[in-house]
């Protein structure tokens, strides 16, 4: 019952998001044709009225809004996201070709920043008030408070441009032929380090702080005193009693902050010229490429919903009290 109502809830959310996705790009100022033709919309257009109408009809943009909306929804149900105005290719193809890079980048970063934040937060709370705690608190808060694009640029300048340790951008060497899959993986990893590091550093602060505070309050709980009274060691108490309880608010926060990860990804992909969906989104906004934007927003909406679903399931796994509701 619990699962079914959750699922219905998520489906309704997706439907609402799809509708907003349709209307939002159309509410933006600007004209999709202007960018295709490389024209400034404020300048007198060199296209005749007839030519304009022909191009708009090609994309179905001449029809009434409601009809466009219905066409969009029907197309969606068939997995058809329409054609990109700029690339003139199916939106689905444009996204899929970039999606794997974005998933690789955000997936790696999310797993690492969550685990590292939880680990460091727990260790910090453990050593509360000591040098180790104060040191990591100050360091993490300082580096995490840089804006993502600034942090990315700094890392690029220092580690790529100056030290030449990592490539400046891209996801792999373009046109390279690899002797074996291992070499290919190494090249991809080499390109992944800086953008992933940027995302990890930019996002670790929230998880770290929350885990630290959550752990501190858990360490003062009666059941921790209870565990000490049994003669259990401090390490065992932390691992078996404290961490699981302290994780509960961290999981909730992780679901609520997926959006920041997505925003961060757009900046990072732009800074490192990473061929992912974020980069595509950035360009498509400039190009007023409605169908492509809608397609990307659809994928973002679905990924947010999936992230929330994962968080919900993790919470159910962690907390028996929620399971029985």
């Amino acid at each position: 019952m619990h699962y079914i109502s959750k699922l219905t809830y998520y489906l309704v959310i997706i439907l609402i998001i799809l509708s907003i996705n349709f209307f939002l790009p159309r509410a933006m100022p600007g004209d999709p044709l202007a960018y295709v033709l490389g024209e400034n919309p404020d300048m007198p257009t060199r296209m005749t009225e007839e030519e304009r109408e022909m191009r708009l009809a090609e994309y179905g943009l001449d029809k009434p809004l409601l009809e466009q909306y219905l066409n969009y929804m029907v197309g969606l149900s068939r997995g058809d996201l329409g054609c990109s105005i700029y690339y003139n290719t199916p939106v689905m193809d444009e996204i899929l070709v970039r999606l794997k890079w974005t998933l690789l980048l955000t997936g790696t970063s999310t797993v690492i920043y969550m685990l590292l934040g939880i680990f460091l937060g727990a260790e910090s709370a453990w050593a509360r008030g000591k040098k180790k705690d104060t040191g990591s608190l100050i360091t993490i808060l300082t580096v995490s408070s840089f804006p993502t694009f600034f942090l990315g640029t700094l890392l690029a300048i220092f580690f790529a441009a100056n030290l030449d340790l990592f490539p400046l951008g891209g996801a792999r060497i373009i046109g390279a032929s690899y002797a074996n899959p291992f070499e290919k993986a190494l090249d991809i990893l080499h390109h992944l380090v800086l953008p992933a590091a940027t995302l990890i550093i930019a996002h670790i602060g929230g998880t770290y702080l929350l885990m630290r505070n959550s752990m501190l309050s858990v360490l003062g709980a009666d059941y921790i005193l209870s565990a000490r009274a049994k003669g259990l060691s401090e390490r065992y108490i932390m691992n078996r009693h404290a961490i699981k309880n302290a994780l509960l608010p961290v999981v909730t926060m992780a679901a609520l902050t997926v959006q920041f990860m997505i925003i961060g990804t757009i900046f990072v992909e732009k800074v490192f010229a990473y061929p992912g969906v974020g980069n595509l989104l950035y360009d498509s906004v400039l190009r007023r490429d409605y169908p492509l934007l809608q397609g990307i927003f659809l994928f973002i909406a679905i990924s947010v919903v999936i992230a929330n679903f994962i968080a919900d399931m993790t919470y159910l796994w962690l907390d028996p009290r929620v399971r029985d509701e």
Partner: peptide, 8 residues
């Protein structure tokens, strides 16, 4: 109520 670990 508070002396037993709620998730164990």
């Amino acid at each position: 109520t508070t002396s037993l670990n709620p998730v164990m």
